[in-house]
Design a protein around this nucleic acid. Structure first.
Lengths: 166, 166
DNA sequence: CAGAATGGGTTCCGAAAGGGAACTTGTCAA
DNA sequence: TTGACAAGTTCCCTTTCGGAACCCATTCTG
């Protein structure tokens, strides 16, 4: 499989990775969630090569995750902001952060804590069912063909079908 | 920033990406969640170059996300299985999948649906607060220095601090 | 018993992507 | 007129990747 073919795979994970599956892209998006918006700021904070940054910003913009908003004319300057599609990556960010907090922090503990304003507690995210509200775990999920499944699609025949993908 | 330095950043997202931030790694893990365990199966299903696959499996094993379990002696054969640390990536997988379902499916809809056995509904994951149970969104979160924060650590001074990282 | 098959790699090559630094372009301020 | 600013673009060299071939211990097939 070549990388440009990823978005044509019948798999939502592969399609997502075709947009954000790059080494730098999620770090750029981290900065976006921190309200970093301008080329030079991204570069200084990340230490990314400028042409790589330009490439990632363009790809994210083309994908509709960021949009370029002019903040000054003459000379025209534009900044990058998360679109609704980009903001919708927040749950994925949170899940990756929580995993890092739990498994990649040394004995000192996580570098940053997130506090839920609504209840006032330091919190992490629990994925819960959009329908019944109960916490979800891998074993409680089954997969089935969706409306966009290819015609020749077969589900893997695992005894307890906990599949995550396609 | 060079890639090998990522895991030393004071940022749980960067640390997570040092393990799973690679193009192929999350696709390998997708297969793991589908109970794919053997070298040849990974290769055939993913179309990944063999030495890249060998490298990723080794890195994931070194990171404690997968473990090698012998399934036959003489000749010794081993397969790769998710550890508890690996299974804990399920919420992140779900979040990425749900995003792909919503934003990367064509008009036909998502290729696969996930059904929650417990309640019987086709569902997606909602990140909810581990403390109060309410759904979390970016605007309801603030960040603060954690126990593992570096001594020179300053929080960005954003008016409404919705930060996601560090 | 010879030869092919199996499973899990390693090696080699040319192509693509990345790191780092210098250069470009349009505008304004000193 | 020179310099600074902001956002790129270009160039060169190193690293990584895709693809194919090769390796090796064991076991199956004829």
């Amino acid at each position: 499989m070549r990388w440009e073919e990823l978005d044509r795979e019948a798999c939502s994970l592969a399609r997502t990775l075709s947009v954000v599956g790059d080494r730098w892209t999620l770090l750029v998006l981290r900065e976006c969630f921190l309200r970093i918006r301008r080329f030079e700021e991204f570069e200084q904070r990340l230490g990314i090569a400028r042409h790589v940054l330009a490439d990632r910003l363009k790809k994210l913009t083309d994908a509709g995750v960021l949009e370029k908003i002019p903040y000054r004319e003459r000379p025209r300057r534009e900044e990058y902001r998360l679109t609704e599609k980009g903001l919708a990556l927040y749950p994925a960010m949170l899940a990756l952060l929580d995993w890092g907090d739990k498994y990649m922090s040394g004995k000192e503990g996580p570098p940053l804590l997130r506090r839920h304003k609504t209840c006032g507690h330091v919190a992490h995210a629990v994925p819960s069912c959009s329908e019944c509200g109960e916490p979800l775990d891998a074993r409680a999920m089954t997969v089935e063909a969706g409306p966009g499944a290819p015609a020749d699609f077969f589900l893997p025949q695992s005894p307890s079908n906990k599949a995550v993908e396609r």
